[in-house]
Structures are given as structure tokens and as C-alpha cells.
Amino acid sequence: MPEFGYFLSCEEHSPAELVEQARMAEQAGFTSLWVSDHYHPWNDHQGQSPFVWSVIGALSQAVSLPVETAVTCPLVRTHPAVVAQAAATSAVQLGGRFRLGVGTGEALNEHILGSAWPEASVRLEMLEEAVQIMRRLFTGAQVSHRGKHYTVENARLYTVPDDPVPIDVSAFGPQAAEVAGRIGDGLITMTPDRTLIERFRRSGGSKPVYGGLKVCWGTDKEEAVRTAHRLWANEQLPGELPQILPTPRHFEQASQLVTRDQVQAVLPCGDDVDTHLEAITKYVEAEFDTVYVSQIGRDQRGFFEFYRTEVLPRLGA
């Protein structure tokens, strides 16, 4: 049986709200935290996007749970040497209870400095080089690097944890899964795709797999569906669109093609226990090590009470 964590959404909530949700998650019985790392929300309805490293500093003082970014892109907007410093400091603040989740990112967040947005194969190549740089810096040694995509000169992290920060790699397709298996300490993905997981394990061996899903708990199912559609219709956009659309406005335009029925078909909405259990069980059956659940909308307190009393006990958590 996997463990169950809570996924903090920086796109929807202010820093103070995220810290309060982390406290409620710990009290409800969740055993770890994911926190998203964005410059922009996906759409204006979500309405927030605080700097994740400041939020992590606050979390380190508020809860005793492990924390992981899901996920950070160390490619364009932020140089991998800077991400390494932020991650190492976070690990020290959390007493070693920090993992760095990384991925190839989205133009939505990464294009803001005016750089060209590379195609997917190039971004994977950049990610592999970035991970190599960060692992060297986590040792506390002085690092100089001149590679195809990055230059580092005489860099040394003086504030480092006792053990190097684990780096988990996000993947949604077969090529990315192979790269994740080769360079990552674990896999991050948002769907219980057995084929993807098998490809990751063939490439990397016996490493942990972490998954996330969104739900919209509420006593009025139809209202929950409307909330999920208004805030997160973007999750149902197909193919590479989520990686290449540049602004929240573009996501809002594309999301007009997503219907409420499409959202309801894939997102647990309402307060039926079996509906929530069925969605989570797919991850259990796919042999995930930890499943992170994220509540859509404002009624966080009701969600945590529901999971504390109805859902987590039936999962054996």
C-alpha cells in the first residue's frame, strides 16, 4: 500500500493559505507534501502564483512533513546552479526532508525572459545536463562546467544538507520516462500509466514512483463539477499544448474546448467516498509508492475532514 500525500497548489492559493493547508494535511493524516512551482497560474481564475522557495521556507517552520517541488524547471527561467542553491537550502531547513522534483517545464512560465522555447527533445537534453550540474553542486565541492547548454564557473554551495538532495524527474511520455529512469532518483507523473512506469523501471531499475491527482470535494456534486471545470479545465488539453501555450489567456482560450462532462469523467467530484477511492485505487494498482491528492477550490477544511474520516481510513493510511 502506498503512502498518501497532499499536493499544495501555488496556482490557487496565497502563501498563508498554503501553510495552513499543510497544517491541516498533517493533522488529517497525509504523510508528505508536494508543492507546485510556477511563475504564472494556468488561468486567471486560479489567481495566484507565489515564489515556491519562500513558501517552502515557511512550510519548514510550520509542519514536520517531507516536502517536494512538483515540479521545478531548472532550464530557462532559472539556471540550474541557482536551483541547486535553493534546493540545498530547503533541504537544510527541512532537516533532510526535501526532494527536488524537476521537469522540462512549460512556455507559460519559462518564456518570460524572452528566451526561445526549445522543442521537447532539446529540453530533455538540457534537463540531463542541468541534473548533472546540480548533483555536483550538492556535494559542496567547487564546480566549473562548460557544456552544450550551461556554463558554471567556480561555483560552490556552502549551505548543503548532510546527504545530497534526491532528484525525481517528471515524465509523461516514453522518451521522458527513459531519461527519468537514467538520471532520476524517482519518477513523477500525473496518470496511473503502467506502460510508462514499466518503461521507467526498465531504464532505471527499482526506483520509487510518485503520482498526483486532483479532486473537487463538495456536498453539491454539480457545483463541484462547475468549480473543477472553471479552475482546471486546462488539465484536459491534449498533447503538447500545455507545454507550448505562452500565457494564461491562451490557456483560457484553449480551455473553452473542454466540456464539463470531460472534466467530470476524469476528476472525482462531490462527496461520494467510493468515487474518490476508485480514482486513488488506480494508482495503488499501478504500484505507486506515494499518491498526492490536491483539492480544487476554496473548501479545503471540508476536504481534509472528509479525507481524515472517510477516505484515508479505508485506504489503510
Rank of each mutant, 00 (worst) to 15 (best):
S206N: 03
T189E: 05
R199Y: 05
S203A: 15
R182E: 13
M190G: 15
G204Y: 01
G181L: 03
A171S: 05
D168Y: 01
F200R: 08
I183Y: 12
R182V: 12
E198P: 03
L196G: 14
R199K: 14
G186K: 05
G181F: 00
D193V: 09
G204E: 02
I197N: 04
P192V: 11
L196K: 14
L187A: 10
G184R: 11
R194D: 06
R182F: 06
E178K: 15
G205R: 04
G184K: 11
G173A: 09
E178V: 15
T191I: 13
I197F: 03
G184P: 08
A180M: 05
A177K: 05
T191H: 08
D168F: 00
F172A: 13
V179T: 15
T195C: 03
T195R: 13
Q175I: 08
A180H: 02
T189V: 10
G204M: 01
T191C: 06
G186T: 10
G181S: 06
G204D: 01
S170V: 13
S203Y: 01
D193F: 08
S206I: 02
G186Y: 06
M190Q: 12
R182Q: 13
A180W: 01
G184T: 11
D193H: 11
G184I: 08
T189W: 04
G186C: 07
F200Y: 13
I197C: 03
A180V: 11
R182G: 08
S170R: 02
T195A: 11
A180I: 09
I197E: 02
